[in-house]
Write a protein that binds this DNA or RNA. Structure first.
Lengths: 350, 350
DNA sequence: ATGGCGATTTATAACGATATAATTGCTGTC
DNA sequence: GACAGCAATTATATCGTTATAAATCGCCAT
């Protein structure tokens, strides 16, 4: 702020038509457009909102000027006045996984938000606090207009809370609650079912499925699909539970190493995640067995990783980017106006 | 939220407007605290800012009431008034990589931002627009108080622009510009140097290094470290350039497949990324060669992935979560007050 | 008393947008 | 020519916070 500016400001107070152009870089506001067009700030606001009571000619003129000077509405002011934040919160659990589960989903979400006024904010959920905390915080303090989260549980507290308060959200995976809620999910039942059928068709006679922790709903879906298939075919089976998602734990590696040394070992594995598939492969290698010969494997593929891995593994693809995109779109629709719940459901089929 | 809660809320609403809109939970503001304490809004504001001219007793009283009712300042109002956004923007290039480069960094950043007023916003850089666009947009429209980006280039336009405008930022990787700038980088020179030495010590006599595209500064560092080592040792070498980071391209796989079939093939590979390391392993497998015997490999490890991979690969670790954490801390320091540039530099040594 | 001073507290005016209500200008009607 | 009726524009108040300037108070020296 220089003395000249002050002087100029003083002049403006008396004669409103002073040819002022001191600051070129000043961020354009509605006031800027108002001065340039000779209209009132209110009119400009309405014109940009495409209000029908503003003359079409005026609307076009205002829009042109706005575009010319590169006007963008101030998010803070809009947010303060309207209460809408134009923010979508993605609740992420850091340290959860070594592979890019989150990255794919973020890519899908940003794609869905592209061209809209919405920004994507990453809200971390720190493992030393209850899972519900970040969600409650976002809701209570209106930190976002909508929430995205993952790893849905059968009786997910977050879903309950958000539904009770009618707060827009979408989650990856389903609950088993009576009340319907918006979600995007992959058909893990079919995945496990088809994976089992493939293994059996290839000659496997004792199947093992490596399941994520029971607290996630999709673990149940995997199990049911698996069980249906092995019962239909009447083959032997076993279930390895509790792959911690961060794969720091050695439970599964211990199980695999032990079982593969035994004579009655499984000859067909189903892995619901890439990490556990790698663990199976590692164990096969360590036992000097041959994949596809001694032991078969069907894995869920959620990235390009398995295109690079040798020996080649049979996989079934789950497109997490697409899931993110879909979640973003459905959430935006939900925010725009409470669409019927049923329409908000979506299922990716294998 | 029960009916009782609503009733309680209505009673609290002072007097006449008992049957107003069913506002779930009126958000506490400075005004709320002012009414509860009998002070003026201004006083409360100053008290919470711990202004010295407010009596200590008053400050404590205000803080207590604020904590009791769970007061949180309205971000939009603060932002509108002060111009500070309390936002850090991470500029991400979607579709860039199959592995979780971004996830680790996000985890580090959120850790650095934990407990502060800052939120992390993901700003995508869409590949059909110039790289500089999101940075310029954030700066011009004050979308954030600081910017984080990656994949720094030798004459990076983003660095130039941000430095010219004195806008807080930090980047992963360095430029080769004359003017110093804040960054966090990994010592890729030493990585390549040591990797080469290891391979030679293990018996390799013709080394090949798989480099990322030349436009990234760290490709040069890798090359220099590599060249220094092979010259010192006087072994044969070759350089495979241009691993596109999204690994969609087959250039490298073609190169590997061709070279491994030739008699004068390299017997030691250095990979600056996990994807290219997998490509080497895949090619070794496809040629029915043996890793560690016919062909040796030293790879950069940036995730837990290679702990799972067999055969075991010799790796040197780069901690991207730590890099993210460091970037976050340095950026916050830079935002708080323009610290000397020199202090903002950091280097992770192998 | 009077004025002044330091220590606290408070009033006022913004920041940039929008919801609401009010105003202007113009037309046609009787 | 007065006025209702309508379209188009504008004034005012407000969201919650903070920067700035002003006001209040007790207390002491003159």
């Amino acid at each position: 702020m220089s003395l000249e500016d002050l002087g100029d400001k003083g002049r403006r107070a008396k004669s409103q038509r002073a040819t002022e152009k001191p600051r070129v870089d000043a961020k354009p506001t509605l006031k800027t457009i108002a001065e340039l067009t000779g209209l009132a700030v209110t009119t400009v606001s309405h014109a940009l909102a495409d209000a029908p009571q503003i003359a079409l000619e005026t609307r076009q003129r205002v829009r042109k000027v706005a575009a010319d000077i590169g006007y963008l509405p101030d998010r803070a002011a809009q947010r303060l006045r309207t209460g809408r934040t134009n923010v979508i919160s993605l609740v992420l659990d850091p340290h959860e996984e070594i592979l890019g589960y989150a990255t794919s989903m973020i890519n899908g979400l940003t794609e869905a938000l592209r061209g809209t006024a919405y920004h994507l904010v990453i809200t971390p959920h720190f493992s030393d606090t209850p899972q519900i905390d970040p969600v409650r915080h976002i809701m209570r303090n209106r930190m976002a207009d909508g929430i995205v989260f993952t790893r849905t549980e059968p009786a997910d507290e977050r879903v309950k809370l958000l539904m009770e308060n009618n707060f827009p959200f979408i989650c990856h995976g389903r609950t088993e609650l009576a009340t319907a809620h918006p979600y995007v999910d992959y058909d893990n039942y079919s995945f496990a079912y088809q994976a089992a059928k493939k293994l059996i068709a290839a000659g496997a006679r004792r199947l093992s499925i490596i399941l994520p922790p029971e607290r996630f709903t999709f673990a149940h879906h995997l199990r049911h699909g698996f069980m249906t298939a092995v019962r239909e075919e009447g083959v032997g089976f076993e279930i390895a539970k509790g792959v911690t998602l961060d794969s720091k734990s050695d439970d599964i590696r211990d199980y695999l190493f032990r079982r593969m040394a035994e004579p009655e070992r499984p000859d067909g594995y189903i892995c619901g995640g890439e990490v556990s598939a790698l663990a199976v492969m590692a164990s096969v290698y360590d036992h000097q067995l041959e994949l596809g010969q001694d032991i078969r494997l069907v894995a869920k593929q959620t990235s390009g990783l398995f295109d690079q891995i040798r020996p080649r593994v049979e996989t079934i693809y789950e497109d997490l980017t697409e899931a993110g995109l879909l979640m973003g779109k459905l959430l935006l629709k939900r925010i725009a106006g409470p669409a019927p719940i049923a329409e908000l459901q979506a299922l990716q089929t294998v």
